[in-house]
C-alpha cells in the first residue's frame, strides 16, 4: 500500500481527556459545591430518613389517642403539642413523611417513563400522530393540574394506587412535551440520518441513538416534577382526597385541625405545614441546582 505518512504520528497527545467523563465529574463537583444543592439535600434527607425510620424515631405512638390530653399546646411532654384525639403531633409529623414520599416518587417515575416514550415517538416521527398527540396534550394542560387530579380521584375513588396513576397520568403530557422538544433538536442532527442510511429500525434510533443524548433534560424535568408531585399529593390530601384516612398524613392532619385555629390551636396545623414546606423546598432546591449544572 502506498501510504502517506501518518500526519498524526509524530505527536504524542492527540487525545483529550474523555469530555463526557470530565463533564460528568465536573457536574458532580459543581453540584456538591453548590449551597443550594446541599441545603436541599439536608432538608429532603431529613424527611427521607423520617419516611424510612419514622416509627423507630417517633418519640410516641403516632396513632395512640389520649382522650385526656386533647389539643394540648407544646410542652416538654409533647414538644409539638397534641391533636384533637390527643395524639402526639411531633410523632405524626415524623411518620407522616412516609405516605407522601412513597406516592410522589412512584407517580413521578410513572409519568417520566410514559412521557419519555411519548416524547420520543412524537418527536422522532412527527407527522399526524405527533400533531394529534400534541393537541390532546394541550387539551389536558388547559385544565389546571390539581383540578384534573381532583376529577380523576373523584371518578375513580381515592386510594394510594389511584393517586399514583392519576398524578403519573397528569404528568405524562408535561414530560412528553419537554422530551419532544429535546428530541426535535436531536433529530435534526446528522447522526440520526446516518442511522437511516444503514436501515436502522426506528426503535433503535429512538432508544439507542437519541435517548442517551436527551437524558439531561429528562433528569431536570424529573426532579422538578417530583416537587410538583409532592405538592399535588399534599394538596389532594388537604382537600380530603388523600390515600387512606388511617395512615398519618400531613395534608390530612392539617385539614382536620384547620377548623380549630380560630380557637388558638395553631400547633396541630403549623407543624405539618412547615413539614410540607421544608420537604418541597428541599426537593426544589435540588432540582434548581441540577438544572443549573445541566444547562450551563
Amino acid at each position: 500500500m502506498t501510504t502517506l505518512e501518518d500526519p498524526a504520528a509524530p505527536i504524542a497527545i492527540p487525545i483529550r481527556p474523555d469530555e463526557t467523563k470530565v463533564e460528568r465529574h465536573e457536574r458532580f463537583r459543581l453540584l456538591v459545591r453548590s449551597p443550594t444543592f446541599l441545603i436541599g439535600c439536608v432538608l429532603a434527607g431529613i424527611w427521607i430518613l423520617c419516611a424510612v425510620f419514622g416509627y423507630l424515631i417517633a418519640p410516641k405512638d403516632p396513632e395512640a389517642p389520649d382522650v385526656l390530653n386533647k389539643l394540648v399546646g407544646p410542652s416538654a411532654e409533647h414538644i409539638f403539642g397534641t391533636d384533637r384525639l390527643g395524639r402526639d403531633v411531633l410523632s405524626r409529623v415524623i411518620v407522616g413523611a412516609r405516605s407522601i414520599l412513597v406516592i410522589a416518587p412512584l407517580a413521578t417515575i410513572l409519568g417520566t417513563i410514559c412521557g419519555t416514550a411519548i416524547g420520543l415517538v412524537t418527536g422522532y416521527y412527527r407527522g399526524f400522530v405527533d400533531e394529534a398527540t400534541m393537541r390532546f396534550v394541550d387539551a389536558i394542560l388547559a385544565i389546571p393540574l390539581i383540578i384534573t387530579a381532583l376529577l380523576a380521584v373523584v371518578a375513580l375513588g381515592p386510594s394510594r394506587l389511584t393517586l399514583i396513576l392519576v398524578i403519573g397520568f397528569v404528568f405524562t403530557p408535561i414530560i412528553a412535551k419537554t422530551v419532544r422538544a429535546a428530541v426535535l433538536g436531536e433529530a435534526q442532527l446528522e447522526y440520526v440520518q446516518a442511522a437511516r442510511l444503514r436501515n436502522e429500525h426506528g426503535f433503535y434510533v429512538m432508544f439507542a441513538e437519541i435517548l442517551p443524548n436527551v437524558t439531561g433534560p429528562i433528569i431536570v424535568e424529573f426532579t422538578v416534577r417530583l416537587g410538583y408531585a409532592i405538592f399535588t399529593v399534599a394538596t389532594l390530601s388537604f382537600l380530603g382526597f388523600g390515600a387512606d384516612p388511617s395512615i398519618p398524613d400531613w395534608g390530612q392532619d392539617i385539614s382536620q385541625h384547620y377548623q380549630f385555629i380560630n380557637g388558638g390551636v395553631w400547633w396541630a396545623v403549623l407543624f405539618p405545614s412547615l413539614a410540607i414546606a421544608t420537604l418541597i423546598i428541599g426537593i426544589n432546591l435540588i432540582a434548581d441546582a441540577i438544572s443549573q449544572v445541566f444547562e450551563r
Binding site: 463526557t20 435534526q188 442532527l189 446528522e190 447522526y191 446516518a194 441513538e209 442517551p212 443524548n213
Partner: peptide, 8 residues
C-alpha cells in the same frame, strides 16, 4: 459534531 453520536 452532529454526524457522530456523542454518547457512542
Amino acid at each position: 459534531d452532529g454526524a457522530l453520536n456523542r454518547r457512542h
